Computed example of a mutant assay.
Amino acid sequence: MAWKDGYLDLVLIPAGVLFPIVYHLWLWRVVRRRPLCSTVGINAATRRLWLFGMMKDNEKKAVLVVQSMRNVIMGSTLMATTAILFCTGVAAILSSTYTVKKPLSDTVFGAHGEYMMALKYVTLLLVFLLSFLSHTAAICTLNQATFLVNTLPSAADLPVTKDYIADVLEKGFLLNLVGNRLFYAGVPLLLWIFGPVLACLCSIVMIPILHSIDMVYVESGSSKGSEVNASTVEMVYESDESVMQV
């Protein structure tokens, strides 16, 4: 059987997609089992403590809550705007008759057919569109959390608790994280236009970069670190009884 250019896409692109998926499944397992060994778990715990502290003295700290949430919402707005601009650019390319839709160069490895080029642009458009949707959902959820934090002391007749507000806040930050990771996934797909080799290499290089961002290593022994993690988790989730009564 003769070798075809499309075989590189069939081998390298699924491999480039598989590596980030496996990494994020591993990261999810780490966050579930050892939350304070990752920045995701540490940030979630500190946000929970911050939220309980703000609700404890809400009359004096209401403005601080609004300013802090506004900064997060502005970041999500920027990412959503950037993602939709990418979607607009890709959609303009797909609807045009320019030669950019055709093979860029014969020196680029991989398939160059019109169907393959359309598949590349459609996949890129879909990823950035999902990133935009995640960030817009994060903005709505964070806005809802802002109202809940500032109205909780006067909402005695409503079935709203501080745990519910913490869950809403974490849902907003989780959507923000998903939107960011989808936006990062658009980089290898953007390089896929120039060939599957660059896309696969970029996907592999991103794994250690994300690992260095996501993981936190304690210099002391593992047993001591686990004791610190357990005590901190208990402090965060047992603060329900001492921070605020709803």
Rank of each mutant, 00 (worst) to 15 (best):
W3S: 12
D5N: 13
D9S: 04
V11I: 15
V11H: 06
A15L: 15
G16L: 02
V17T: 01
L18G: 08
L18W: 00
F19A: 15
P20T: 07
I21R: 00
I21V: 15
Y23T: 05
L25K: 06
W28V: 02
R29A: 08
V30L: 13
C37F: 14
C37Q: 14
S38P: 03
T39Q: 07
T39N: 13
V40A: 14
T46N: 10
G53Y: 03
G53H: 06
M55E: 10
M55T: 13
N58L: 11
E59V: 04
A62H: 14
Q67P: 01
S68P: 00
M69I: 07
V72M: 12
I73N: 10
A80S: 12
T81M: 11
C87Y: 07
G89F: 06
G89I: 02
A92N: 14
A92I: 09
S96T: 05
S96H: 05
K101L: 13
K101P: 00
K102L: 09
P103K: 04
G113Y: 02
G113T: 15
E114W: 10
Y115M: 13
M116L: 10
Y121E: 14
V122W: 04
T123R: 09
L124P: 07
V127A: 08
F128R: 05
L129W: 07
S131N: 07
S134N: 08
H135S: 05
T136A: 11
T136L: 11
I139R: 11
T146P: 06
L148Y: 07
V149N: 09
V149E: 03
N150M: 10
L152D: 06
L152W: 07
P153Y: 03
A155S: 15
A155C: 12
A156G: 00
A156I: 06
L158F: 11
V160L: 15
V160C: 11
D163H: 04
I165T: 04
A166R: 05
D167Q: 11
L175H: 09
L177I: 03
A185D: 03
A185I: 01
G186S: 05
G186W: 03
V187L: 11
L190F: 11
W192I: 02
I193G: 04
V205T: 10
V205M: 09
M206P: 02
I209W: 03
I213N: 10
M215V: 14
S222K: 13
V228K: 11
N229G: 15
N229Q: 15
N229F: 00
S231V: 05
T232V: 06
V233A: 09
V233K: 12
Y237D: 12
D240K: 11
S242H: 05
S242F: 06
S242Y: 09
Q245I: 10
Q245H: 12
